[in-house]
Design a protein around this nucleic acid. Structure first.
Length: 582
DNA sequence: TTAGGGTTAG
């Protein structure tokens, strides 16, 4: 450029823009500024096009103030000028500012185009504004643009409006990979793994190959559904993409959550690049699967590696302590999190500590900690204390904790039932009746216990009281024989876990058909002995089923993994990885 | 010839 200048030749706008974009590609702010200053000192007044390029340059270098100053000085602004700054606001999550800017743009008489809309959609922080923007898009005839379409699907999904996302998707005539990814991601984010996997199949039928983000959503769905086999299949495709950090993190999480800790660890070890999410995932994975010591060892390695722990990392660390009864370690990490990493303890951290102290029988300390909390305790906090009261049979405190839970979550069926059982055990029948009336008046219904087991990449569901499984007769007959065999080696059904209104044999019957027992038997019938039986549950496993699974693992020589909403139980040779502490 | 879309941890 300098030689052009000494020859008296002025570079034209295109040359200047190429020069600026070259600086951008090299991340060279110094030379980019030099070009801008050169234009300024030589009294060259660039046309709107070149100023837009400069504006974009400042935006990309995240120098919003300078971009704004330049925008204010522009004698003429077109839709690109407005959109450049507007998308800078959305990227910086300045949603309110982005919307104000859109209003100014409209007042200036500039109509938004597909570029503007695809940016502004991400800034919709209210459903109402989203609907308004969607109407304008249709009015301007821009709803068929694939960028706008994927942004619409994405934002509707984020608002939980899957129905609307689906409508936008179904209107698509020409295919587009990112639009497919948006709808698959939408279903995955809304915990509809089945829907996401079905769309993934349709996408492949439509002739599209999976991209990194497609696979990330697929893995997320496998994680939610505990589909280890489908997830492992996706792993084969993941390898094709080489070292993709986000994708590998999703893979890691899938193996951890599906109970495949060995595979998770080998993925983790082989990862070329690891970030705080990779470390946190693996630490929580070890902790939830009952390997607390490994989780804490990994936390030490993380610190050595130089990766700074964050809020979520510490949740995993404290979870590891609470599930192994490591009171001193727990206190140490809890007290040092602020001092060492500047992280204020949040509800989840307090929750882990309440759990840790409560399980260890230090109920008074747990209550004291709840009262000292910097943030307000929520239903989960009180439910944690309630769980500890149940283990340590502290009726007085349990009633107090249960009342606190119901104040904050009046629809929590589990707590009503627990409270009612506590009253029944203390012969407080009037209180029992009162609870039942409250449940009836509030329309509280207990979610039926359900378990899912994966056999030949198919999910088989077992729901308490539902006999629709085609092999249910065979399962029931095998289950009865199994119970008989186990009773021969000392199994006594533990009826403490049953609703209070059942008596004697009836009590045992209701335990007999707990969904995880049916799922276990089905796994035994359908899978060869060397295959692990993997079960996912919607409720926490009860003590009776836990004992049952240990005995099955021992006498039938099976490995069983049961994942409940909080943690995982690996049953092998008559013991569980949780050490009976859950 | 400048501006826009999808993915990860509790």
């Amino acid at each position: 450029m300098l030689s052009m200048q000494t020859n008296g030749i002025w570079a034209d706008a295109v040359t200047y823009s190429q020069l600026i974009n070259c600086c951008l590609a090299r991340n060279d702010l110094q030379h980019a500024r030099l070009v801008h200053n050169h234009l300024f000192f030589h009294g060259y007044h660039p046309k709107t096009f070149l100023t837009n390029v400069l504006l974009n340059m400042y935006v990309k270098f995240k120098l919003l103030d300078e971009a704004e100053a330049l925008f204010d000085q522009m004698p003429e602004r077109n839709v690109v000028s407005w959109t450049t700054l507007l998308s800078a606001y959305t990227n910086a999550k300045l949603n309110h500012k982005a919307f104000q800017f859109l209003v100014l743009m409209l007042r200036d008489g500039v109509r938004p185009n597909m570029f503007t809309y695809s940016s502004v959609l991400r800034a919709c922080h209210r459903l109402f504004s989203l609907r308004q923007v969607h109407c304008s898009i249709i009015k301007d005839g821009l709803d068929s643009d694939v960028f706008v379409r994927s942004a619409l699907i994405d934002i509707y999904s984020k608002w939980g409006e899957l129905h609307n996302a689906l409508c936008v998707f179904n209107e698509m005539v020409t295919g587009d990979l990112v639009v497919w990814n948006s709808i698959i991601g939408g279903f995955a984010q809304n915990s509809d793994g089945d829907g996401a996997l079905n769309f993934y199949k349709s996408m492949k039928r439509a002739g599209f190959s999976a991209h990194q983000s497609t696979l990330t959503s697929v893995l997320r769905s496998c994680t939610a559904l505990a589909l280890l086999e489908v997830g492992s299949q996706a792993h084969v495709h993941v390898i094709k993409f080489g070292p993709d950090l986000i994708l590998n993190n999703a893979l890691l999480d899938m193996y951890c959550k599906c109970g495949g800790l060995g595979d998770a660890n080998s993925v983790f070890t082989r990862m070329v690049e690891k970030d705080v999410i990779s470390w946190s995932t693996m630490i929580a994975g070890f902790a939830q699967n009952g390997y607390s010591r490994e989780a804490l060892r990994l936390f030490e390695s993380m610190k050595v590696s130089g990766t700074r722990p964050n809020y979520i990392t510490i949740v995993g660390v404290l979870f590891a302590c609470s599930h192994a009864g490591l009171v001193e370690d727990g206190w140490h990490h809890f007290q040092s999190m602020k001092k060492l990493y500047g992280i204020e303890p949040g509800r989840e951290h307090y929750g882990c500590m309440v759990d840790l102290l409560g399980r260890a029988g230090k109920l008074d300390e747990a209550v004291r900690l709840i009262h000292e909390m910097q943030c307000k305790p929520d239903a989960v906090t009180w439910r944690t204390l309630l769980g500890a009261c149940r283990v340590h049979q502290n009726v007085h405190l349990a009633i107090y904790a249960a009342k606190q839970v119901l104040k904050l979550d009046p629809q929590d069926a589990g707590t009503y039932i627990l409270l009612s059982n506590i009253y029944a055990n203390s012969q407080r029948w009037e209180d029992v009746a009162e609870i039942r009336i409250a449940m009836r008046d509030k329309g509280v219904k207990k979610e039926p216990g359900s378990s899912w087991v994966e056999v030949n990449k198919q999910i088989h569901a077992f729901i308490l009281g539902d006999n629709s499984h085609p092999q249910i007769d065979e399962i029931n007959s095998q289950l009865n024989q199994l119970i008989h065999r186990l009773m021969g080696v000392g199994y006594i059904p533990d009826t403490n876990f049953v609703l209070q209104d059942l008596e004697g044999e009836q009590r045992e019957d209701s335990l007999r058909y707990h969904s995880e027992k049916l799922a276990m038997v089905f796994g035994m019938i359908s899978l060869p002995r060397e295959k692990t039986i993997r079960i996912r549950k919607n409720l926490r496993i009860c003590g009776d089923c836990h004992l049952f699974a240990k005995l099955v693992a021992k006498t039938e020589h099976r490995i069983i993994v049961i994942r409940d909403p909080i943690r995982y139980h690996h049953f092998q040779d008559g013991v569980c990885s949780c050490g009976d502490y859950w």
